[in-house]
Amino acid sequence: MKTVFLGVLATAGLAAGVAGAATLDDVKARGSLNCGVSTGLVGFAAPDADGVWEGFDVGVCRAVATAVLGDPDAVTFVPTTGQTRFTALASGEIDMLARNTTWTFSRDVDLKFEFVGVNYYDGQGFMAPRELGVSSAKELDGATVCIQTGTTTELNLADFFRVNSISYEPVPIETNAEALQQLLAGACDVYTTDASGLAASRATFENASDWVILPEIISKEPLGPLVRHGDNEWADVVRWSLNTLIAAEELGVTSENVAELAAAPTNNPEINRMLGTEGELGAMLGLEASWAADIIAAVGNYSELFESNIGESTPIGLARGLNAQWTDGGLLYTPPFR
């Protein structure tokens, strides 16, 4: 009894002790950003053949590292599972989490996290082998469903089957890779997760055309980076690093023309404010004046990040859809840089 209690208290105490307030100063002093990512989801966050992490979520980590430290490679990537991610963030093991995490009320309010924005608007879908002959998720009565445990998809799935009064058998699995292994072995009939994750996973299959993604999207999954509650300066840094990516696309700033645009003030005052040739936005955040220009030079704007990692020219082949700029009928809309 005593040892168990002591152990738990000690762990909780130590873990919480690390979670200081001034994350920005900590990151600067450390010289690297601890960024929580998924354990491996091609296109979003996965190490390449040389062990270098790349992907859409990784891009957000690199953007923040560039803004704070001026170096997109000054990131220590911490792979987290659906179950470990929140503890890692709450305990201070990571400074921010960019791991296709859904923004929900209870995570924002009850779990004491701060979602700084949305970098991908997603929804939960199902993927099944074509030979199963299923064309709708409502035909899945009695199916065995592989699911990543500790995620919102687990709850959505329960709700979906309850609302449609059909039964299913959940197979809880820790990581995406294990789930795919089960699916390929036929140990489950369908796999459910965010539709983007399904597309990314299907792209890694040998015969991608043997798999269908069912038309139903059963939930709203706004995915975005998050930080701990209570450190607003740090939350601002992450929020505006993300906004920079999105605004840069809207304003037509790319990694190619950013050096030219940042060299001297242009005709567009908003571009000037963002790139630091006018005003003091960087200093207000406690960063260099060229922070936003550095981000775009290092990782590109939202569109570049999207197209090079998960866009239609990649094997994952996701269309912009909801993730287009508001001017193009999408949902991406940043507050102005003013």
């Binding site: 168990v4 209690f5 152990g7 738990v8 762990t11 909780a12 659906g82 179950q83 929140f86 503890t87 709450a90 209870s106 009850d110 779990l111 004491k112 445990t149 500790g150 687990e154 709850l155 809880p172």
Partner: peptide, 18 residues
């Protein structure tokens, strides 16, 4: 696992489990 993850009650959950 799931309960702790959905409710964020790590300390309570781990104490109960222990």
């Amino acid at each position: 696992g799931i309960t702790i993850n959905q409710t964020g009650r790590e300390l309570e959950g781990m104490l109960l489990l222990g």
